[in-house]
């Protein structure tokens, strides 16, 4: 790791000020992806701004019929939250299978969304549930937030402060993990919302998380595992690597969709 300056922010404003003041600062929101990247010398921020001690950025509350989760809330806290388990059990289950227990104690929902790793789990939930990402400057719909692999709509000085999930009548997530890293090779989040059935896929797409129109259409007609069994995904849009071909990932998308739908029951 290259040398860096550590700052602990006391408020969102303080974090924004520190972020703006430094030459090439990054938000440290748990660091479970950022720190390994820095250790490999693939990232070299001049400064890191730790936001995990900002009280306003932590905690889970019911809000307007949905759930508001502070950006610095850990995966373990989301997984264990009675509110999330009751209202969005699929989201709680997703959080409970990110990384491993130790990573879940440190990693945060805001950090995961802001990084938008194409194999991360949370982006699929945010997109499928139609979440709204709150920053220190504005609110961004998940639809507009994820702009490509490791790319988001965030400005350089912008900090994710909270995520708001609308309620869903049912939701579930099924992922097939990469055998080595345990990141998603294909993760499918299915949600029955007021706006209809929404399905988002992570891990498999060349441009990161995406909504799957074919699966959504099939489920709109019949919300059943059988309905998606015949839905295919164009392998040309999917990743291929030593762990599996694009065709294999396309198959996994269908299989995980079936399992997620079954888990919604």
């Amino acid at each position: 790791m290259y040398e860096t300056n550590y700052h602990r922010a006391t408020s969102v404003d303080d974090a924004a000020a520190k972020l703006g003041a430094a030459e090439d600062a990054k938000v440290l929101s748990g660091g479970q992806t950022l720190l390994p990247t820095m250790k490999q010398r693939l990232a070299a921020p001049s400064d890191v701004i730790d936001v995990t001690h900002i009280a306003d950025m932590k905690g889970i509350t019911e809000s307007g019929g949905g759930i508001r989760i502070g950006a610095a809330t850990t995966h373990a806290e989301v997984a264990g939250s009675e509110i999330v388990k009751r209202m969005l059990p699929g989201l709680a289950a997703l959080a409970g299978h990110i990384g491993d227990p130790h990573v879940r104690h440190m990693g945060t929902i805001g950090g995961s969304l802001a990084n938008n790793d194409p194999a991360a789990d949370y982006p699929s939930a945010a997109l499928a549930l139609g979440a709204t990402i709150h920053t220190n400057a504005r609110q961004i719909s998940a639809e507009d937030f994820f702009t490509g692999m490791f790319e988001t709509a965030l400005d350089e000085s912008e900090i994710v402060t909270a995520v708001e999930f609308p309620k869903a009548s049912a939701c579930a997530y099924a992922k097939y993990p990469n055998p080595a890293s345990r990141y998603a090779m294909a993760g499918v989040f299915v949600a029955r919302t007021d706006g209809g059935v929404r399905v988002a896929v992570t891990g498999a797409g060349q441009n990161g998380v995406f909504r799957h129109a074919g699966l959504e259409d099939a489920l709109a007609q019949s919300f059943s595992a059988d309905a998606v069994a015949g839905v295919t995904t164009d392998p040309d849009q999917l990743l291929a690597d030593i762990h599996g071909s694009a065709e294999y990932r396309a198959n996994l998308v269908t299989v995980m969709a079936k399992r997620a739908v079954a888990a919604c029951a």
Binding site: P179, A180, S181, D241, I242, H243
Partner: peptide
């Protein structure tokens, strides 16, 4: 290509 535990699959307890 498999130069770390991100890509070289070490057997874990659940394997």
């Amino acid at each position: 290509l498999s130069a770390s535990y991100m890509d070289y699959t070490m057997p874990r307890a659940d394997d």
